[in-house]
């Protein structure tokens, strides 16, 4: 499945760029991520708990960053194995453009599932992937710019580890 979208984050491009390279931010933004270690250069090891239709599984895998053109573009790729549940992999080509009032993120997402996830969950995988991508970028937006509106984004399952973090925390962190 493939999809694309854009959104504007109210922060300078360098801040958004730095955020997406930060393991703490990635961990907070990948829906259901319970563990994430590593570096942008060598890649990250991640553990993600997710439920797709009738299949709930812990995915262990990698997140890597490639095609890095600072601060304009990056490709995020993730691949996780869920044991008997099968596997999921996905990627996003993200471009950062300076626009009035912040940074416009344009992203093209590609997601694939295999094994039991495909066998039992293919009907719902498009919707699931879209939800995951929306969630990721909403989380990123929240982390960078802080809450702007009262209506909060829906919380994805597996997000429980991140309660306690306040929106805008990354921006506050980098702006000292």
């Amino acid at each position: 499945m493939q999809m694309s979208d854009t959104r504007v984050i109210k922060a300078p491009r360098e801040v958004v760029w730095a955020a997406i390279l930060n393991p703490e931010v990635l961990k907070a933004c990948v829906p259901g991520c319970t563990e994430l270690t590593g570096t942008p250069e060598k890649g990250f090891e991640a553990t993600v708990v997710q439920k797709v239709g009738p299949v709930k599984a812990t995915f262990k895998g990698t997140v890597s960053l490639s095609n890095m053109t600072e601060p304009e573009a990056v490709t995020l790729s993730g691949e996780g194995k869920g044991g008997a549940a099968g596997f999921a992999k996905g990627g996003a080509d993200v471009r950062f453009a300076e626009v009035e009032g912040g940074t416009e993120l344009t992203y093209e997402v590609d997601a694939k599932v295999g094994g039991k996830l495909a066998q039992l969950g293919s009907r719902i995988i498009d919707g699931f992937a879209k939800k995951m991508a929306d969630q990721f970028f909403t989380n990123l937006q929240d982390a960078v710019e802080g809450p702007s509106e009262a209506d909060e984004a829906p919380v994805a399952e597996g997000d429980a580890g991140e309660e306690g973090k306040k929106k805008g925390w990354f921006k506050r962190m980098v702006s000292g």
């Binding site: 495909a118 039992l120 293919s122 009907r123």
Partner: peptide, 16 residues
């Protein structure tokens, strides 16, 4: 019986 382009079997239960 449906396979996707990667050879994933998409119709593998009585739901599909």
């Amino acid at each position: 019986c449906i396979y996707d382009a990667d050879g994933q079997l998409l119709s593998a239960s009585y739901m599909d």
